[in-house]
Design a protein around this nucleic acid. Structure first.
Length: 428
RNA sequence: GUGCCCGUAGCUCAAUGGUAGAGCACCGCUCUGUGGCAGCGGCUACGAGGGUCCGAUUCCCUUCGGGCACCCCA
């Protein structure tokens, strides 16, 4: 305890410190998220980071809770898990108050989530994630709307259609293809799905070969289905299945909404079992960084795990780490600026005057910081410059006498002599 | 959880089995009423522990940290 040098300066493994410039970016990302989803009428909710471990076991199984979450026993003997995702929590909240909530529900949240695993690019132990969900609408209109919110957020960040792609599929359709069209066993379906998930990462030949090993004589038939790029070109029996019709409708709606970079992709599977209908993933199209950014889908049976009547849901989630990487890649992050509009420097014996002026300006709604050091003026101004503060002025004998201040813009080096009211107009 | 690669100053890098240097950044001065430019000066490092060796930043092991791939994907 006495050894000061032993204390680490690093943040805990897989977590980040947010210095003001990092927090600025974080706030920017959050503000874009909020602005867009609130435009669609989504309401913000929140919850504790702690949940009973049982909640995740019911959904994901013992293995995942044990090996990939922060789980501990509290002093009352309860098993507790720090939330690794928000969906079980929101499903719980919806189930609990289902009689008092006004469906359809449009809800969003920006929780921080924790998972215990080895950190790597795009995947840390703590991250923040926008969760957008709609409950109580069974039709594909809800699916199309949630995809549309995802699209609008990408556009609000300044992404162009050619930067990303929305790949859409449907679980019901996939199940039809596997179980009805190909009449596969459970095991074959499972293995084939896992393989399909890797389709875009593999070369065509090894992929076909691997599929052959799983499906034998049926593999060619499946590979043919996987090659279909346009919903309309699907085998009529597939297209006419319930899942096929859903997919067709969603694609039409997205097109009607003016979303041009959405397309059918039979390779979109998504890891979790709880998806029951539409699934989608947003892909980064940068050749150097070709990967899934985020995604979501329809989960009509999830609320039912609480033993209540069926409440349908559809939604998606996007993490701050991956979107930040994406925005950096495309140079879409905003330039840093502090909330301070004016930095007041002062000469000897005029600190009181500087504080008085600051106080007056603050009461008029300006964000003003006073340099409280007795350093020379050049050092004070330099501080303002390094902090990206747009305006600076110096309080001295002359200013106090005349009530006029030389306000300098540090951006373009112009200087104007202004009184208080003029300062307010200028800096605001 | 598995495999491979990496760890020198705040950052990006260099040299070396005989304890290390640059650029940028930072602090100060030139410049006691105004930042950016320039000059001068200053600060800061071999991730940690152990082994081999007369001697280790360099070689070996462990550990911690980082990167990539796999696993998993919430």
């Amino acid at each position: 305890m006495t050894s000061k040098s032993k204390l680490s300066l690093e943040p805990y493994k897989g977590t980040r410190d947010f210095y003001p410039r990092d927090q600025f970016i974080q706030n920017y990302i959050f503000s874009v998220w909020k602005k867009v989803v609130e435009k669609y009428g989504y309401l913000e909710y929140g919850a504790s980071i702690l949940e009973e471990s049982e909640l995740y076991r019911a959904k994901s199984g013992d293995e995942i809770v044990k090996e990939q979450t922060y789980t501990f026993t509290d002093r009352g003997g309860r098993e507790v898990t720090i939330r690794p995702e928000m969906t079980p929590t929101v499903a719980r909240m919806v189930a609990q108050k289902r009689r008092h909530l006004n469906f359809p529900l449009r809800w969003y949240s920006i929780p921080n989530l924790f998972r215990y695993e080895r950190p790597q690019r795009g995947r840390l132990r703590e991250h923040w994630q926008l969760n957008v969900d709609m409950f109580g609408v069974e039709g594909v209109e809800a699916d199309a709307e949630v995809i549309s919110t995802a699209y609008d957020i990408m556009k609000a960040f300044g992404a162009k259609d050619e930067h990303f792609e929305i790949r859409v599929n449907n679980r019901r359709l996939m199940n039809y293809i596997l179980a009805e069209h190909l009449s596969l066993t459970e095991e074959q379906s499972h293995k084939a799905s896992k393989l399909v998930d890797k389709m875009h990462k593999m070369e065509a030949v090894p992929f076909s070969k691997a599929m052959q090993e799983i499906l034998a004589e049926k593999s060619e038939m499946f590979l043919k289905v996987l090659r279909v790029k346009d919903v309309g070109s699907l085998d009529p029996s597939i297209l006419n299945s319930a899942g096929g019709q859903e997919l067709k409708l969603i694609m039409e709606k997205l097109k009607a909404m003016g979303i041009k970079n959405a397309l059918y992709d039979p390779a979109v599977v998504r890891g979790f079992d709880y998806y029951t209908g539409m699934v989608f993933e947003v892909y980064d199209l940068n050749p150097k960084n070709n990967r899934s950014l985020f995604g979501g889908g329809r989960y009509d049976d999830l609320v039912g795990i609480f033993g209540v009547e069926k409440i349908t849901g559809t939604g998606w989630a996007m993490g701050d780490v991956t979107i930040r990487d994406f925005l950096e890649t495309y140079n879409l992050l905003p330039e840093y600026y502090p909330p301070v509009g004016l930095y007041i420097c002062h000469l000897n014996n005029h600190l009181e005057d500087a504080n008085q002026l600051a106080s007056d300006l603050r009461s008029q709604g300006l964000n003003v910081a006073v340099d409280l050091t007795d350093r020379k003026v050049s050092a004070q101004v330099k501080t303002a410059d390094k902090e990206n503060i747009p305006y600076v002025l110096v309080v001295g004998e002359e200013e106090v006498k005349t009530g006029k201040y030389k306000v300098k813009s540090l951006k373009n080096s112009t200087e104007h002599t202004l009184d208080k009211n003029e300062i307010i107009a200028q800096v605001k």
